[in-house]
C-alpha cells in the first residue's frame, strides 16, 4: 500500500514542498499539516521540515515545540510512529525533548549552505535502514545553528546505544563528535541537519537523500 507522509507546516517553515515532492517522487502520498492542528491526519510517518518556525525567535524550535500539533506528534512518536526532523525540524525535536542535546550557532559563525559528505554510522534507525553501514552520502546543509551540543553523559549514552545516526566526514560547524544526526532510544525519531529532500534528484547534484527517504517510507506499518 502507499505510504502516507504528514509534513508539518509551522509559520516560517520553508522546505515543506521540497519534502512533499521528494517523497511523492518515491511513490508515497504526502499531506501538509498545519501546526495549529490538534491532531494528525491518517499518516504513516511525520516529517518536521526545515525553515524558520515561528521566526526562530528566542531560539530555533523554542516556540514551535508549543505549537498545538506537537502534542499529536509526541503521541505518534511515543506510539512508535516514524518521525524525522530535518534541519529546523531537528531543532524543534531537541527543544521538544523528543531528541537529546541542542543545536547551537555554528562555530565559524557563518550561515553554511553547501554540499557535505555524511557517513552513515548506524543502519539501525528508521532513516538509515536502506543504507549500508559506513556509506558516505552527499547531502546539502543549510543552517546557522547546526552545531550539535550535548552534555558528556548524553554523548556517552548516544555512543553506547549506537544512536549517532550520521556524522560529518569534515565537521563544518563545530558539532560535538561531528554529529550530523541522532535518534531516540526507540530509533523511530531521527533528527538531522542535512537536507535529504534537496538531494533527491540528479538535477539537484545528488540523489543520495533518496536512500534516507526510502528508509523512512519502508517503515510504514505493515497493516497498510
Amino acid at each position: 500500500m502507499t505510504a502516507r507522509v504528514g509534513v508539518v507546516l509551522f509559520p516560517g517553515s520553508n522546505c515543506e514542498h521540497d519534502v512533499v515532492e521528494a517523497v511523492e517522487a518515491l511513490g508515497a502520498e504526502a499531506e501538509i499539516v498545519w501546526h495549529g492542528a490538534g491532531a494528525l491526519p491518517d499518516v504513516d510517518a511525520v516529517v518536521l521540515p526545515g525553515g524558520f518556525a515561528h521566526g526562530d525567535y528566542l531560539r530555533p524550535g523554542a516556540v514551535a515545540r508549543f505549537s498545538p500539533v506537537m502534542g499529536a506528534v509526541r503521541d505518534f512518536a511515543d506510539g512508535g510512529g516514524p518521525v524525522i526532523g530535518i534541519c529546523n525540524g531537528f531543532q524543534v525535536l531537541t527543544e521538544a525533548g523528543l531528541l537529546p542535546g541542542a543545536l547551537q550557532k555554528n562555530s565559524g559563525l557563518k550561515f553554511l549552505c553547501t554540499m557535505v559528505n555524511v557517513r552513515v554510522e548506524t543502519t539501525n534507525s528508521i532513516l538509515t535502514s536502506a543504507a549500508h553501514g559506513g556509506q558516505v552520502l552527499r547531502i546539502p546543509i543549510n543552517h546557522f545553528e547546526g552545531n550539535y551540543t550535548c552534555p558528556a553523559d548524553t554523548l556517552a549514552e548516544l555512543r553506547d546505544q549506537d544512536r549517532v545516526v550520521l556524522r560529518y566526514v569534515d565537521n563544518p560547524n563545530g558539532s560535538t563528535d561531528s554529529i550530523a544526526g541522532v535518534c531516540n532510544e526507540g530509533r523511530n525519531v531521527v533528527g538531522l541537519m542535512p537536507h535529504p529532500e534537496r538531494a533527491s534528484d540528479a538535477l539537484l547534484g545528488s540523489e543520495d537523500g533518496r536512500i534516507l527517504l526510502r528508509s523512512l517510507l519502508a517503515h510504514v506499518p505493515a497493516l497498510r
Binding site: 531560539r59 516556540v63 508549543f66 542535546g101 550535548c150
Partner: peptide
C-alpha cells in the same frame, strides 16, 4: 519552560 534551553 520557555526562556532557556537547560541543555546549554
Amino acid at each position: 519552560r520557555l526562556l532557556t534551553n537547560p541543555v546549554i
